Amino acid sequence: MIVVEGKDDTKALRRVAECDTIETNGSAVGEAVIEKIRLAAERRGVIIFTDPDAPGEKIRRTVEQAVPGCKHAFLSRDEARSTRGKIGVEHASDEDLLKALEAVRTAGQEAEEQITVDDLIGAGLIAGPGARRSRERLGILLRIGYANGKQLHRRLIEFRISRQEFAGALEAMDNEIRPESDPAAGKKRDL
């Protein structure tokens, strides 16, 4: 079962996959909806797929806190942006919806070797020029969504992102920033 915010999200997902949804109908997730999600989690499993904005993140946190162990699908803000600038799952292309569903992640046990706050600082993801933009790009590459520095650290742990995955995403970011013809290309970030 996929937890979404509303009927337009359900319609969009049903264009690309045969699925059942539970609609929260807003960020004030009621106890009746939580009970449906609990039952779905026990019997089928749950994927939380909310908009990449503040209300969507509030729903994601509320549901995860009430029903631990849910899986998560994420879209970037650009993937979820309409031609009029609105943000929502319902605005994503079929291709981006499928990519998000294929990259579903489960929060849970910690990775064998955790990424530390010092790793994030050394990689320029906390504080400093461009940190916000770098966190946004890292969230896209790892398919864990945008997060501030504290949230990013928590998500890296929750979604068991390995040091190898983290380093690979940082390297991809460096290659995007500095094309191979750039003499600074290939400069490694501190881990």
Rank of each mutant, 00 (worst) to 15 (best):
M1H: 12
V3I: 05
V4D: 01
E5N: 08
E5F: 03
G6C: 03
K7N: 10
K11T: 13
K11C: 10
L13C: 06
R14E: 14
V16Q: 08
V16W: 07
A17H: 12
C19I: 13
C19A: 12
C19R: 07
D20R: 15
E23D: 09
N25C: 13
A28S: 15
A32R: 14
E35N: 09
K36F: 03
A41Q: 15
R43K: 15
G45V: 02
V46T: 02
P52N: 06
A54Y: 14
P55A: 07
E57N: 10
Q65K: 15
A66P: 05
A66R: 11
P68D: 05
P68H: 06
P68T: 05
P68A: 05
P68W: 07
C70G: 02
K71N: 12
A73P: 00
L75V: 03
R77C: 09
S82C: 08
T83A: 13
R84Y: 10
G85P: 07
G85E: 06
K86H: 13
K86F: 11
I87R: 00
V89T: 08
D94C: 10
L101C: 04
L101H: 03
A103D: 11
A107W: 02
G108V: 02
A111D: 04
E113H: 13
Q114R: 15
V117M: 13
D119G: 03
D119C: 03
I121C: 07
A123H: 00
G124W: 01
L125S: 02
I126F: 03
A127R: 12
A127E: 10
G128K: 05
P129D: 12
R133G: 12
R133V: 12
S134I: 05
R135A: 04
E136I: 06
E136P: 05
E136D: 12
L138K: 01
G139Y: 01
G139K: 01
I140W: 10
L141M: 12
L141W: 05
Y146D: 07
Y146C: 03
Y146G: 04
A147I: 02
N148T: 04
G149I: 00
K150S: 13
K150E: 15
Q151E: 15
Q151I: 11
H153D: 08
R155Q: 10
I157S: 14
E158N: 12
E158T: 04
F159K: 05
S162M: 02
A167S: 13
A167L: 10
G168C: 09
G168A: 09
M173D: 08
M173F: 06
I177L: 15
E180D: 11
S181H: 15
S181C: 11
P183E: 11
P183H: 08
P183T: 10
A184V: 14
A185R: 13
A185F: 15
K187W: 10
K187Q: 13
K188P: 06
D190W: 13
